[in-house]
């Protein structure tokens, strides 16, 4: 002990921290004046604790670190009620998402894309392909269509209207691959196209493959 500077001691600060804990647990909205008073108080104590911490060692140092952490938590908690009150105002004034329109559009565009897929699939089946080959060939065609629409600059226009309707189908997966690759062409073919091509596709493959391995394992051991 004996860390007395500007009349502040460790015990006094701990006492203040405890006092404030009660006020903060109520999380009532403080006036601006009260708020800045608390902020100043916390700042003073924080600097002190930090300074003491640099001078101390061993167990004493750990004590000061704890004190500083407590103060930092209170600094954060202090502004929370004000932030929440503000968010409520901002949320109330925010323009409403056009959920109904978006949902209908997603349904229609998603439906159309899947119907196109079904038509292509049927054509392949008629052409004599087996069910699995027909399905794979269909996704190849869908991916190609999406890739070229993206290259020509139409897929993002569709996406603006269709939302999830153009993201969820495999065409959206292809769009995310091709658009990332295109976008970073100017950064070179290695670190631009080659690396960025996986920005969205990477996570999809990572999690898809991992889950498939888990499922395979479960199947392997249960069967």
């Amino acid at each position: 002990m004996g860390n007395v500077t500007n009349g502040m001691t460790e015990e006094k600060i701990w006492k203040k921290v405890k006092q404030r804990e009660k006020i903060m647990s109520r999380s009532t909205l403080l006036s601006n004046l009260q708020m800045s008073e608390y902020q100043n108080e916390l700042q003073k104590e924080h600097q002190k604790a930090l300074y003491w911490e640099t001078k101390a060692s061993g167990e004493e140092k750990i004590r000061f670190t704890n004190l500083r952490n407590e103060i930092e938590i209170q600094q954060m908690l202090l502004v929370k009620p004000k932030q929440e009150a503000y968010k409520a105002i901002a949320n109330r004034l925010a323009p409403k998402q056009t959920v109904v329109k978006n949902t209908i559009m997603a349904f229609i565009f998603g439906g159309i894309i899947c119907t196109i897929g079904q038509i292509i699939n049927n054509l392949f089946l008629q052409g004599g392909l087996a069910v699995k080959e027909a399905a794979t060939s269909t996704s190849v065609i869908m991916i190609s269509l999406s890739a070229f629409l993206t290259g020509l600059g139409y897929y993002d226009e569709l996406g603006k209207i269709a939302g999830a309707g153009t993201i969820v189908p495999i065409t959206g997966f292809a769009n995310s691959i091709v658009s990332s690759a295109m976008e970073f062409k100017r950064e070179g073919y290695i670190y631009g196209v080659g690396a960025r091509i996986f920005t969205v596709a990477g996570p999809v493959i990572v999690y898809g493959t991992s889950v498939s391995i888990v499922i395979g394992l479960i199947y392997y051991f249960i069967k």
Binding site: A94, P95, K96, Q97, T98, N102, T150, G151, G153, Y155, D156, E157, L158, G159, K160, A162, G163, T166, I167, G172, N175, S176, V178, S179, S180, M182, E183, F184, R196, T199, V200
Partner: peptide
């Protein structure tokens, strides 16, 4: 867009805000 958000040709929907 390319720094803060998505590639410009990616089909995304911007929220109303």
């Amino acid at each position: 867009e390319r720094q803060y958000r998505y590639p410009t040709e990616q089909g995304t929907q911007r929220p109303m805000t």
